[in-house]
């Protein structure tokens, strides 16, 4: 497989996790592409405008990338923190539409601000890695960390509170869970992850403009999660990987490519209403692996 495509897929998986986090406590937020755009602009502006970030030789310094990711994630997180409380009082489709509006407002801002390069955006973004393989390794580490954090949520009090809100918000509040705070944490975490991903993606894509954060992207990232399954983090990761790769893998069919892609998006939820990854399938898979392990180590207690 081609490393550049793999990198796209990994970025897709990270964005899917960003949509998954609020959804884990029942909040349908489609703001991910907006925060992704913000993170990307931070990285693009710093690495093209500040000499220390741009580096001197063919590649820009790796620590600079880490700082950009931290700053991009922080800015996205701050925006989420500022608007989170009022917005998260909305539910269901109302929250979805409010976050779509947010993405559009951010897009118009990015297009009109004096320093974001207008329609052309920012280009000539320096490269921290000489090859796509470098990006892939780096992103894999990032994705692994993100997955590990999501995995930790399963056992942490916070994670259980999130699930309780998803199942029944009123009941969760009545057993003493601070529901507004929990929802806000999920929303901010989602924004930080999207911002960090954007900062990395801006380098990988060489250029950044206001079109990256659009309505289409909102729906596509939601499709990642719906497709993969929203109960467990592996679902969005798989959904993000698969749906990013699909249009590329469908290239041999030529003109029918996007028609088939639409067909997959249409049929996927019909055949897998819970997404690809469900608790049952995971248990089955887990048991299968467990048995395999058991055979190899028959003496294990």
């Amino acid at each position: 497989m081609d490393a550049a495509l793999l990198e796209q897929m990994l970025l897709g998986a990270l964005l899917a996790l960003s949509v998954y986090l609020p959804l884990r406590c029942g909040q349908l937020s489609l703001a991910t592409p907006g925060f992704y755009a913000v993170g990307g602009y931070v990285a693009a502006l710093l690495s093209t405008g500040v000499p220390a970030f741009a580096g001197t030789g063919a590649t820009s310094p790796l620590p600079a990338l880490l700082v950009e990711m931290a700053l991009g994630g922080s800015l996205a997180g701050l925006i989420a923190l500022a608007i989170g409380r009022p917005v998260l009082r909305l539910r269901g489709i109302y929250l979805a539409i409010a976050t779509i509006a947010l993405v559009e407002i951010l897009r118009v801002l990015n297009l009109n601000l004096p320093f974001t390069g207008g329609a052309m955006g920012i280009f000539g973004i320096p490269q921290p890695f000489a090859h796509p393989e470098g990006y892939v390794l780096f992103t894999l580490v990032l994705l692994a960390v993100a997955c590990w954090l999501c995995q930790r949520l399963e056992v942490l009090r916070l994670g259980r509170a999130m699930l309780a809100i998803r199942d029944d918000e009123l009941a969760a509040a009545s057993v003493g869970i601070d529901t507004p705070r929990t929802k806000l944490i999920a929303f901010v975490a989602s924004a930080v992850l999207a911002g960090v991903t954007g900062a990395l993606a801006a380098h990988f894509l060489n250029a950044w403009n206001a079109r990256v954060g659009s309505f289409d992207a909102s729906i596509t990232t939601l499709a990642f999660v719906v497709f993969g399954g929203s109960r467990f983090w592996l679902g969005p990761v798989l959904g993000g990987l698969a749906l990013t790769a699909l249009p590329e893998l469908l290239r041999p069919v030529g003109d029918l490519r996007l028609i088939l892609f639409g067909g997959v998006i249409l049929l996927g939820p019909l055949f897998f209403p819970q997404g690809l990854v469900t608790a049952e399938r995971l248990r089955w898979l887990g048991a299968l692996l467990g048995r395999g392990r058991g055979r190899r180590k028959p003496l294990a207690p």
Binding site: M1, D2, L137, L140, Q151, L234, L238, L282, L285, G286
Partner: peptide, 25 residues
């Protein structure tokens, strides 16, 4: 515990993609 196993599944998948990544030439 079930989630311990899931973690291993996840790690396994990530390793797999890592291996695939090495194939670009």
């Amino acid at each position: 515990m079930i989630f311990g196993r899931l973690q291993r599944v996840g790690t396994g998948l990530l390793t797999l993609t890592l291996l695939l990544a090495g194939c670009g030439s």
